[in-house]
């Protein structure tokens, strides 16, 4: 991802959003949004993973490192996990991880978590529209980009 491109000198800021979604629910929800021709902003880059239980916290950090302005993590509703408990494990993990981000001064309002089932194409559409608009209001994530600039020699 080219960091400069999401922050053009002139013209409106277009947020870049990375969505880590599970294969069984949210990805199919996004798919349903597509087949139903529900339009949602093209600002989101969907990355499909087997299960929210697999979504390593490092991936969230990585997304910010390469220039994301917001990150979405989404999977099956509680009780619906294809692997029975991946999302429950993930929920615990995010409960703690958000605390760490907050302590580090990383803007937790740029990190979104949702449950979206394969039947919730509409919810996916609404969610992406909403995240895009709130991120547009927040502006580019300069604070983390500054961290990622290389140091002087």
């Amino acid at each position: 991802m080219n960091t400069a491109a999401s922050d053009p000198a002139n013209g409106e800021f277009e947020p870049k959003i990375v969505a880590y979604v599970c294969n069984w629910c949210t990805y199919l929800g996004a798919d349903l949004a597509g087949t139903n021709r529900l339009e949602y902003p093209a600002n989101v880059r969907i990355i499909r993973l087997p299960c929210t239980g697999r979504i390593d916290f490092n991936l969230i950090v990585k997304a910010f490192e390469i220039g994301a302005d917001a990150v979405l993590v989404s999977g099956c509703h509680p009780g619906d996990c294809h692997y029975t408990s991946g999302n429950y494990h993930a929920r615990r993990r995010w409960m703690l991880f958000r605390e760490l981000l907050a302590t580090l001064g990383i803007e937790t309002e740029r990190v979104h978590f949702t449950w979206i089932s394969a039947a919730e194409g509409k919810k996916f559409q609404q969610l992406i529209s909403e995240i895009t608009s709130t991120t547009r209001d927040l502006g580019p994530y300069h604070a983390y980009r500054e961290i990622c600039e290389t140091c002087e020699v």
Partner: peptide, 16 residues
């Protein structure tokens, strides 16, 4: 262990 386990009753406020 906290992260080796889970509870269906875990309560959070941020997942939509």
């Amino acid at each position: 262990l906290v992260l080796g386990n889970f509870s269906k009753q875990d309560q959070e406020q941020f997942i939509r």
